[in-house]
Design a binder for these strands. Structure first.
Lengths: 159, 159
DNA sequence: CTTGATTCCATTGACATCCATGAATTCCCG
DNA sequence: CGGGAATTCATGGATGTCAATGGAATCAAG
């Protein structure tokens, strides 16, 4: 479970600590480290544990998960962009150059919890992102609630 | 199950006891602590156990729970604002600064039970909130009864 | 030998853990 | 039934530990 926001320093070797809270949720994982994937369309990195990566790979094998061949190829590309980065003895990782480039991260970065995944941002990029989100939220009449179940929708066109 | 109202002190380190009654309902939880999320539009914090947070995260992974991309992003923001706070040996938590700020809590706070969740308020803010609620209630002809089932509604106008 | 990466060690400041107190409640046994 | 003992809780404070961070040492190549 990944929540909250944690800002950390990136040292001159590209190392950054992973929040102790995140590490403890990853403790059960067989792999001691995390997975980072550039988010398309955002200057951010998506992060999670190795276990989730394996689940994603499994879903890829299921012919029902993605409908067409193009989708499948595009999803595989995510695996190509994924980087598995191990913890060092003190719970740090080194951010691969490509990922740092994608997110525009230089000397600080902020972890943002998102449930089963988290994101890594350049702090200012994240602030800008939040700004945009809040603007969008203001256009809504009601706030979006946390839901446990899919909303009941009226019968759609038959699948 | 969270009920009743409990007022407690916040010490200079930001610590506050969690009602023993609440702790016992959280006892089965794997995580020894609670989750706090600022309520949008109210100077209050929503609280519940880690188990519920996991259910919410699971719902987030289900492609059917939220229909469009914007909704999804806005909901993830709730996780970013969420704070997981562990109990100390004596059943206390420390209120993170951001949450204290949001709720305007300084040296006392009141827990308000709400079924599967509870809320934390600055005592005076809660009184004001109750005031507003009662005013609204007075405009109604009938009181709102406790219901066990969703009320059947006539087909709404199509969104 | 030089460069780049990985492991190891050192510092410091926050915070989790531990301990103490008093009030209120429950328990138990006469 | 009653009163004393034993818990349980809320609360305050002290201190020991660990997380975040920087730098040195070791290792692996080119």
């Amino acid at each position: 479970m990944f929540t909250a926001e944690f800002e950390f320093k990136v040292d001159r070797k590209g190392r950054i600590s992973v929040p102790a809270d995140y590490r403890s949720t990853l403790a059960h994982d067989s792999y001691s480290g995390i997975v980072l994937i550039p988010v398309e369309g955002e200057r951010a990195l998506e992060g999670f544990g190795n276990e989730r990566l394996e689940s994603l790979a499994k879903a890829l094998d299921d012919p029902d998960t993605y409908d067409d061949e193009d989708e499948l190829e595009l999803v595989k590309q995510h695996f190509a962009k994924a980087r598995r980065v191990p913890f060092d003895g003190d719970g740090r990782i080194v951010l691969p150059v490509e990922t740092r480039k994608h997110a525009g991260i230089t000397d600080t970065a902020i972890y943002v919890g998102g449930g089963n995944t988290f994101r890594l941002w350049h702090p200012e990029a994240y602030e800008a992102h939040k700004e945009r989100l809040e603007a969008k939220a203001r256009t809504r009449t009601k706030p979006v609630p946390l839901r446990l179940k899919p909303r009941k929708r009226k019968p759609e066109a038959e699948p």
